[in-house]
């Protein structure tokens, strides 16, 4: 469809790409290890084995990595370029953002035919990422609150004291478990949308997450 020459433009800086792929790897590791913690399989053949111990060790290590990665991305949204800025995540706050959102929504709902080509984030995607980061917060807080119970009255247990007021202990487990399914729902949406816009925009949507570059008709000012 597009036969115009294109310029390459640097969109996703290194920390943005690293956070993206570290998050992805952590979600895969945490989901698999978390599944075995929730529904363990009797792998142990003797009481001297440590299979559940290792699964939990992997889960907790990945959890720390994930928490650091998510926090780094939040901090980067105040440091990085305009495409990574926190402003991108609240498109409904500005007039231009609202217009862009409406166009994108009309395209997604098969009403408009004109492809709304975006350079940085798709406004519908960033709105979804805000919800996703909310789910990440629930995951990180419930996860560390459950983890901290091995050392009651310790510093982590005290710092997360408000969690034990907000949730019952089992309620925390349920929230932690069901949030994993919400993330799966997001992942399906995310992979599909990236694939769809890669096809429709011809801007290198998927490869941009590896290289950082997208391809645009207009030259960068």
């Amino acid at each position: 469809m597009s036969n115009q020459p294109k310029f390459k433009r640097y969109i996703w800086e290194l920390p943005v790409r690293w956070c993206h792929w570290v998050n992805m790897a952590c979600i895969v590791i945490l989901s698999v290890s978390g599944f075995f913690i929730g529904n363990p399989v009797s792998f142990g053949s003797s009481a001297s084995d440590f299979t559940m111990g290792w699964i939990r060790f992997i889960h907790f290590t990945a959890a720390y990595l994930f928490a650091v990665s998510v926090m780094s991305r939040v901090i980067w949204s105040f440091i990085g370029n305009k495409y990574s800025s926190w402003r991108e995540f609240f498109p409904l706050m500005t007039d231009a953002g609202r217009k862009k959102t409406v166009r994108m929504l009309r395209y997604y709902l098969l009403i408009d035919k004109e492809v709304p080509e975006t350079v940085g984030h798709n406004p519908l995607a960033t709105a979804a990422y805000v919800v996703l980061f909310g789910i990440y917060s629930v995951m990180i807080l419930t996860g560390f609150a459950l983890y901290a119970q091995h050392a009651p009255q310790g510093s982590m247990h005290k710092a997360l004291g408000f969690m034990y007021v907000l949730f019952s202990d089992q309620g925390m487990r349920l929230a932690h478990h069901i949030s994993m399914w919400f993330i799966f729902g997001f992942v399906i949406n995310h992979i599909y949308s990236a694939w769809l816009m890669d096809i429709k925009e011809h801007g290198g949507e998927i490869s941009s997450m590896f290289s950082g570059y997208k391809f645009t008709v207009k030259k960068e000012e």
């Binding site: 469809m1 433009r9 862009k100 004109e114 492809v115 709304p116 350079v119 399906i188």
Partner: peptide, 24 residues
């Protein structure tokens, strides 16, 4: 839901954005 959406997208004819509507 996304499989259906993808199928419907495969069938539709898209329009190139013009100079004014194009962001980049």
């Amino acid at each position: 839901a996304f499989a259906v959406h993808g199928a419907l997208n495969a069938l539709r004819r898209d329009k190139e954005p013009n100079e004014d509507t194009r962001e980049g």
